[in-house]
Design a protein around this nucleic acid. Structure first.
Lengths: 227, 227
DNA sequence: TCAAAAGTGTTGTCGCTACACCCATGT
DNA sequence: ACATGGGTGTAGCGACAACACTTTTGA
């Protein structure tokens, strides 16, 4: 374990979203220390005195999943006076979007029991983690309407139907397939890979990838999106 | 001065918006301690160990303006490692909306030289205050599109034209007067006070007030606004 | 009667929603 | 040939933007 000096009264907590089996899921860990030892909770940690704040959740993500350069957004600050029982700790919430297919349990010194849980079936969470989680989902739903960040949750190559299922899972509503395709076509930040699915027992779907460059130019022109 | 224990590595900073002479303004203070003594900066402060986080900016606002129950929203967290030269301090930014007519320089123990500055004519600011300010304006512009928070910047009784001028100042663009009135009429969260302006050398405008109750019921129905 | 701001309707365009059928592929 | 999901077009409606003149009031 490292012994770098930490900021005593400040922590970070992460809501790590993944998409699997058509469901939006979050990664929880089993707490191995008191308070609330044994409960499933959001992964969190403290901030080193000599690291940028944003580095702390990125580091935690890396320890936990082996992933780098993860999509990370601030949820907000949670600063109620009694939110943490041992001492005064204010926490900054972040949410992360990861490709669940890339994820591997990282068996390092920090290895902990972890679990992907559907966001509709969360267990009771300790401290104010339920509040942090709710806020994460609100923020994600808001962001996903204005920026095409969903691709962070999908494999490199994906089908339109996968993308639609993802949006339906995030927004928790049905979307009309034809309208969804029309909107995507009009906006046009997908690369048609001219490739098909394989080994499916029905008509094979076309594969696409997200085109960052096209997207950037659209943003400059002031586009917004809304599914 | 009070000697309550503070959290050493955490501060708050406030962007205080007001509306005057048709312009959106921010309240700056002259720093009376080093570093950057003498520079105009955002008012900020530290958080007591035994207060809720949100109480810290509310307290600072009260000290500075004499106002309570001010409209306050989180801007975000600013945690770069070298943002504050003396030691490691992470700051939480807030913006406040106040009725500039209610404001009085509070001449207490904390009295400092303060100044309302048009947001288009800000001086150079210390540390990362310029970044905090920019983010505040971005957040305000975003929020004002979805919630009618603008009334927090106006007197209790106001005219449609005042409201429009305010939106023009915030969004920094011209708005068509007829369309603006139509939208307001359709949304309908204004109380027609059946009163007129007095002592104006032209046709007197009707006065309105913001109706919180009507607004709450609209929010429940899932309305959005966009000017 | 003039100056200055208040207040009022209509039309065209664009974007969204709703909706049903044929296609390709593997078993 | 059948089961399964892939992929396509149109019509109606509502929301928004553009636009100019008349009204009221005090000086």
């Amino acid at each position: 374990m490292d012994e770098k000096p930490i900021i005593e009264n400040l922590s970070i907590d992460c809501v790590i979203f993944g998409f699997d089996e058509g469901k939006l899921k979050a990664l929880l860990i089993k707490r191995n220390t008191d308070p609330c030892k044994g409960m499933m909770s959001l992964p969190g940690g403290f901030v080193y005195v000599d690291e940028d704040l944003i580095h702390a959740p990125a580091r935690r993500l890396h320890d936990l999943t082996g992933l780098k350069d993860v999509f990370l957004r601030e949820i907000g600050v949670f600063g109620k006076i009694d939110r943490y029982p041992l001492r005064r700790v204010i926490t900054i919430g972040y949410y992360a979007l990861i490709k669940i297919s890339d994820y591997n349990i990282h068996v390092g010194e920090d290895a902990q029991e972890v679990q992907w849980v559907s966001v509709n079936e969360l267990p009771e969470l300790p401290f104010d983690h339920a509040e942090i989680f709710d806020e994460a989902l609100i923020k994600l739903r808001k962001h996903v309407r204005y920026e095409p960040i969903g691709y962070n949750l999908l494999p490199e190559k994906f089908t339109i139907t996968q993308l639609q299922t993802l949006y339906e899972a995030i927004l928790n509503k049905q979307i009309d397939n034809r309208n969804f395709r029309k909107k995507l076509a009009k906006i046009g930040f997908l690369n048609d890979l001219k490739e098909k699915q394989k080994n499916v027992s029905h008509r094979a779907a076309n594969l696409y990838s997200f085109d960052k460059v096209k997207y950037e130019t659209l943003v400059e022109k002031g586009y917004t999106f809304d599914f």
